[in-house]
C-alpha cells in the first residue's frame, strides 16, 4: 500500500528504481553463486564420504573391471600385476573402510580382501610435492629476485610473458613431456631400474610450481614500499646489498606464502603425477621408485568403481582430504602471511 502511494506521486521514478533494485539484487545474487559454489563443493564431496563414518553391514554382489595400468614400458610392479587381471567376482568378504583399514600401509582396493591404507598415497603425494618444491622453488624465487631487482627493463618484459606462457602449459602436456622425454633421458643417464618414479614426477611438477611461486614472490617484492629501498640506497648500500639485506627480509612472508601456494598446487595436481610417477602405491623413502599420489589415485580409479561402493567412498574421502589440505594451506597463506606483511610494513 505504501508502494502504491509512492507510485501515485511520481510514477516515472518508481520505474527507474525498480530497475536499479533488480539490477542490484540480481548482481548480488549472482555474486552469491560464487560463494555457494564453494559450499556446494564442500557439501557434495563430503556427502559421498559419509558412509565411512556410519558403518554398515553390506555384502553386496558387485562386479569390477579394472584396466591394466601399464604406463609405457614400466616394469610390472607388485600391485599392478595384481591389478591387471580382469577380475569379476562376488564379494562376500568384508569390504569395509574403517579407521583400521584406512590407516593401513597397503593400498590395494581390488581383490579378495581390499585394503584401503592411505599411508602410501599420502607419502607419495608428500614425496613428489617435496621434490617439486625443492627443485622448483629456489629457481622460481631467484628468478623473481632477478626480474624484480636486477633485470634490465627490456629483459624483464621478456621474462614475465615467458613465465606466463609456462603457467599456461596444460598439465597434461607437462605430464606427457615428463613421461616421454624426461623419463627416457634420466633413465639413459642414470640407469634407473624404474623409468617412471617420484623424482621424474617431482621434476615435472617443479615446472608447474615455478610460475605460481615466481608470481607470488615477485608480487611480494614489488609490494615493498619504495622508501625502504631508497633509504637503504641513500645510506650507501649498493643494489645487491639492498636486495639481500633489506628487500628480501621484508619480503619473507610473501616468499613463505609463495612456497605454501606452490605446495598446495603441487599437492593437488593430478595429470602430471598420473602420467609420470609410475603409479605404484609403494611406501618407500627412495625417490627413485614409483609412487602413487592421492590425486593420481582418484584420477586412475574413479572411472572404474561402482557408485556407492566402498572403494568409491574411499576415493571421495581422498578427495576431501585434498580439499581440506589445500583449503588450509590457502587459508594460512592468505590470513597469516597477509597479516604479517601488513604488520611489517607499518613498522611494528
Amino acid at each position: 500500500m505504501a508502494e502504491k502511494e509512492i507510485s501515485n506521486k511520481n510514477s516515472l521514478r518508481r520505474k527507474f528504481r525498480l530497475g536499479e533494485f533488480l539490477a542490484e539484487y540480481i548482481i548480488k545474487g549472482v555474486a552469491f553463486c560464487s560463494f555457494a559454489v564453494i559450499i556446494l563443493i564442500f557439501v557434495f564431496v563430503f556427502k559421498e564420504t559419509l558412509p565411512i563414518f556410519s558403518p554398515k553391514e553390506e555384502t553386496a554382489t558387485k562386479q569390477e573391471f579394472l584396466q591394466s595400468e601399464s604406463y609405457g614400458d614400466e616394469p610390472a610392479t607388485e600391485s599392478s600385476s595384481q591389478m591387471s587381471d580382469y577380475s569379476s567376482f562376488t564379494s562376500d568378504k568384508k569390504d569395509v573402510a574403517d579407521i583400521k583399514n584406512l590407516t593401513g600401509k597397503e593400498w590395494q582396493p581390488v581383490g579378495e580382501d581390499p585394503k584401503y591404507g592411505l599411508f602410501p598415497l599420502i607419502m607419495g603425494s608428500l614425496k613428489v610435492t617435496l621434490i617439486a618444491i625443492l627443485l622448483g622453488a629456489p629457481l622460481a624465487i631467484l628468478a623473481a629476485i632477478y626480474s624484480a631487482l636486477f633485470a634490465p627493463k627490456r629483459f624483464k618484459e621478456l621474462i614475465k610473458p615467458a613465465i606466463e606462457l609456462l603457467a599456461s602449459f596444460p598439465s597434461v602436456v607437462v605430464g606427457f613431456f615428463a613421461l616421454i622425454t624426461l623419463a627416457t633421458f634420466f633413465q639413459e643417464v642414470f640407469g634407473w631400474t624404474f623409468r617412471l618414479n617420484s623424482f621424474i614426477g617431482g621434476v615435472a611438477m617443479a615446472l608447474a610450481v615455478i610460475p605460481i611461486v615466481y608470481t607470488v614472490t615477485e608480487d611480494a617484492i614489488t609490494a615493498i614500499p619504495k622508501y625502504m629501498t631508497e633509504a637503504s640506497l641513500a645510506l650507501g648500500a649498493n643494489k645487491w646489498q639492498t636486495a639481500l639485506f633489506v628487500i628480501l627480509p621484508a619480503a619473507t612472508p610473501g616468499v613463505f606464502a609463495a612456497l605454501l601456494l606452490g605446495f598446495g598446487r603441487a599437492f593437488g595436481e593430478t595429470m602430471i603425477v598420473l602420467m609420470a610417477t609410475g603409479n605404484a602405491p609403494l611406501s618407500t623413502l627412495n625417490p627413485f621408485e614409483p609412487v602413487r599420489t592421492l590425486s593420481a589415485t582418484i584420477g586412475a580409479e574413479m572411472a572404474e568403481v561402482v557408485v556407492g561402493d566402498t572403494h568409491y567412498t574411499v576415493l571421495f574421502l581422498i578427495g576431501s582430504l585434498l580439499f581440506i589440505v589445500t583449503f588450509l594451506i590457502n587459508a594460512i597463506a592468505e590470513f597469516y602471511v597477509r597479516a604479517k606483511l601488513m604488520k611489517r610494513f607499518r613498522g611494528e
Binding site: 555474486a31 552469491f32 560463494f35 564453494i38 556446494l40 559421498e48 593437488g268 593430478t270 582418484i298
Partner: peptide, 27 residues
C-alpha cells in the same frame, strides 16, 4: 565471505572439481 570463497575456489585442486562434478551434477 565472497572474496574468501573466490580465493579458496582458485586453490581447489582440479581433480576435486571432477569429484564435485560427479557428486553434484551427475549424481
Amino acid at each position: 565471505m565472497i572474496r574468501f570463497a573466490v580465493n579458496t575456489l582458485s586453490g581447489v585442486p582440479s581433480i576435486v572439481f571432477g569429484l564435485f562434478g560427479l557428486g553434484f551434477f551427475i549424481q
